[in-house]
Design a protein around this nucleic acid. Structure first.
Lengths: 142, 142
DNA sequence: ATAGGACCTACAGCAACTGTAGGTTCAAGC
DNA sequence: GCTTGAACCTACAGTTGCTGTAGGTCCTAT
């Protein structure tokens, strides 16, 4: 029987986070000790590890909920699982390309600043004036 | 004199967002019409454009607050501005490399899945078992 | 004069946690 | 068996950067 602290240590999660997952129904309500403390078994540990690993891969809690539901019905076709992963991959790729554009813009901005007074600072000029921008980074960074 | 809606349209901001910036002190309290509606001038429009552009470049509101403060004292050295921009660049670069690791992991995961039943799905296996991971993506994606 | 779009305030909600306060339980050492 | 202090408990507020809603007022064009 594992305490919540042990679960946390084994999966690299904060204790509060585990309780939060329980609150939103991602983790089941576990058994309790005599005194009312949470007690977990190996299936719960595995489930938590699955959740954490998926989070590290950038899946939203909603997506993870779906993946967990799917993995509970092993006879189903895994096309849906594949679709979720594909979607996540596309999102990651989109984020990368937006960040690449930002990186280039920031580099250009920084490299152009050769003054030493704020009054002539190229960085501030670029920030003031969108027209100076080469790239189109019009959607918020996410 | 510009209404809040005009400001919003000109800068690609939502009306609520402008009011939010005022609430947190990023935008000044503007003058008001007879009936109590906000009325802005060109300096406020410029300030808002600066904020929005900085946001698009991924700066946090805190960083933008600093940049705005700095740009108000033109005789200061711009080393501090440079430092903020450098920090932002480093953060963007760090995010990119974490996302690159995720992308590779997702691609590998997806390409390995050749089954059609959830029971044998490689994607779910990889998510279940962190040991199968090649990369170390141990910090949360941001 | 009126219609309906734009504006007002105030507040709740989002994601995904994190932190705090104030109290209880557990387990190791004596 | 007792003590001590780390770990646990609940409940709730706060984080970032907005976005949405309700219920009401104002502005401006016709």
């Amino acid at each position: 029987m594992l305490s919540i602290g042990t679960m946390a240590r084994r999966t690299g999660t904060k204790v509060q986070t585990i309780r939060y997952y329980e609150l939103i129904g991602l983790m089941p309500e576990p058994g309790r000790s005599e005194g009312g403390q949470r007690r977990y078994g190996t299936p719960e540990l595995d489930r938590l590890a699955f959740i954490r690993h998926s989070r590290q891969l950038g899946f939203s809690l909603e997506a993870i909920r779906e993946l967990l539901d799917l993995s509970d019905s092993p006879e189903r076709r895994c096309a849906q699982v594949d679709a979720i992963a594909q979607k996540q991959l596309r999102e990651v790729e989109a984020r990368i390309s937006r960040l690449e554009a930002l990186r280039m813009e920031l580099q250009r901005m920084i490299s152009e600043c050769r003054s030493d007074r704020v009054a002539n600072c190229r960085i501030l000029e670029v920030l003031r004036d969108h027209e100076e921008c080469l790239s189109d980074h019009h959607r918020p960074v996410s």
